[in-house]
Structure formats: C-alpha cells, structure tokens
Design a protein around this nucleic acid. Structure first.
Lengths: 137, 137
DNA sequence: GTATTTGCAAAGTGTTTGCAGAATA
DNA sequence: TATTCTGCAAACACTTTGCAAATAC
C-alpha cells in the first residue's frame, strides 16, 4: 500500500463531496463537477471514489437499482442512515444497538472480521402527508 | 393486481429454489436448471424471481459486485443472515433486536413504511483457522 | 377466445479497464 | 527521472425489454 499522490482532480472531488454532505452517485457527482466547469472524467470520479472509500473517508449505500451512493464521512466511525424514498432526505441514526448486537453475534457464531451494512428507508413525515396522487408517482 | 398463471417454468424455478435452500443468483439458478435438463430461458428466471420476490416468497441480498442473490423464504417473516465471505456458509440469525430498534426509530423520526436491510458478513471459524496463505487469495 | 407467459436477441445500466500521454514527487 | 494519475473508448456483468409465438385459463 503506497501513498496516493495529490492531484487537482482528486482535490476537487473530495472537496465537492465534503461540501455536499448528502449521498450522491458517481455519475451525479461527475455531472455536478462538469456544471461547475471542471474537466474531470467519469473514470477519474469512479477511481477517486474507490480510493476515498478504501481510506474510510466515505460512507456508501446501494440504491435499489444497484447504483452506489457515496457520502463524505466527517468522523472516523462509519454511520447508518435513514432515507426517505420520496424526497431523498437522509438522517443519521444512532446505531449503537446494532454495533453491540453484531459483536455479540460475531462471538456466538465464532466469526472473525465481521462487517455489517444496515439500510433503512421509508417515507418521511413531509412526504407521507402529501396527497395520495403524489405518492403514486 | 392480477393472479399470476401457473406454468411449468415457474413451478420448476420455485421448486428448485425451495429444494436448494441457499442463496443463489438468477444466473446460477438458470445454470442449474439447464444442467438438470430444463429448457428455461434466463429472462424467465429473472421474471419469475421478481414475481416470487414481490409475493414475499424470497429473501434477497446483494453481492458486493452488485449481483442479487435469492433464497427461498420458508415462513412469512423476512429473515436476516450472517454469511462467510470465504466459503459462503450462511446462518439465519435472530434479529428481533433489529426489528424493535427499527420500529422505535420509525416512530421517533415520524416515518412511514419503514423497510430495513441488514447484511452481515465475516469469516467463519472453519475458514478463519486455515493457513494465512489460503486466506490471502 | 382472450389474456398472460415465454424465448430470443437487442438494448440498458452502472461500473471497470487497457493504454498512451500528462502530471506528480 | 521514475511512478502514478488521467482521459478516452471499449469492454464488462448483470438485468431489463419489445415482440411474435406458445401457453394457460
């Protein structure tokens, strides 16, 4: 494992993610950067996202369609989110319960290197109170 | 919502899944069926898996690569699994804690229609006790 | 007889990769 | 200068879809 080099592209990508502070896809991010006038290729966005994810600087979730969404992770701990399927609103939730439960489970099952992914989605208060027509899409 | 019709293909697919009782991909299942001499197209496998999933007769997880794996669900409740990344061994785990935690969360956050996905993976006792060389793969 | 289901091949999606040139250390 | 990084276009893996023929009800 070697230290990655700095480059304009990587800096721009990391900055944009930190500024956004919401989940966004590689393609979405690429689009935003282009709008902002940056000349960064989609491949570079993908590669940089991998890099940042490996460094633990991003959280990642997966859309029903299979698309991966990334979000800047402020601290060093991974976090869990609750997302509104309607408007995309995401809340950070306290998942201490899960962490402890998973550790218990790991011991009982005799596993090592346990990883967990928890994805929560629903319809938030705002969206739920809209007219039925709207929720039919 | 209309009642689906029965067909040889659908029966074979559902049967094979029930008999297997492990996670398998659409393509993997298609391959098995062909080996068994069935003449079923891949599209039909995909379509039937969707159908069964909609009917709540399957559990579904997603591989890191993006591939979806399906498994017959014996009861009516969805289940959570702990998978060994090495050998594929999967254990059904008791996730009552999670269900309760999710419901609490739902109420506090004022959400509706909450869904959750919990995926646990690690290295099982068997695989963990192997020689380091093997685990490097 | 009518509506649903199938198989095929083509298209679609998000992502990865090989390579030559550009950029970093 | 020696690596690493970038952009491009092509390749990839998995999944979905349009349509005509076959099948279930």
């Amino acid at each position: 494992v070697r230290t990655p080099r700095r480059s304009n592209q990587r800096t721009r990508i990391a900055d944009e993610l930190a500024r956004l502070d919401t989940f966004i896809s590689a393609q979405g991010l690429h689009f935003r950067l282009r709008l902002a006038g940056e000349q960064i290729s989609l491949s570079t966005v993908y590669r940089t996202l991998h890099l940042l994810a490996d460094l633990g600087r991003l959280d990642c979730v997966r859309e029903p369609g299979g698309e991966r969404l990334y979000r800047h992770r402020p601290g060093s701990q991974h976090r869990h989110y609750l997302t509104c399927r309607h408007c995309g609103l995401t809340l950070v939730v306290d998942a201490t319960v899960i962490e402890e439960w998973a550790e218990q489970l790991r011991i009982v099952a005799g596993f090592a290197h346990l990883e967990h992914a928890v994805e929560l989605s629903g319809v938030c208060g705002e969206c739920g109170s809209e007219t039925p027509e709207q929720s039919l899409k």
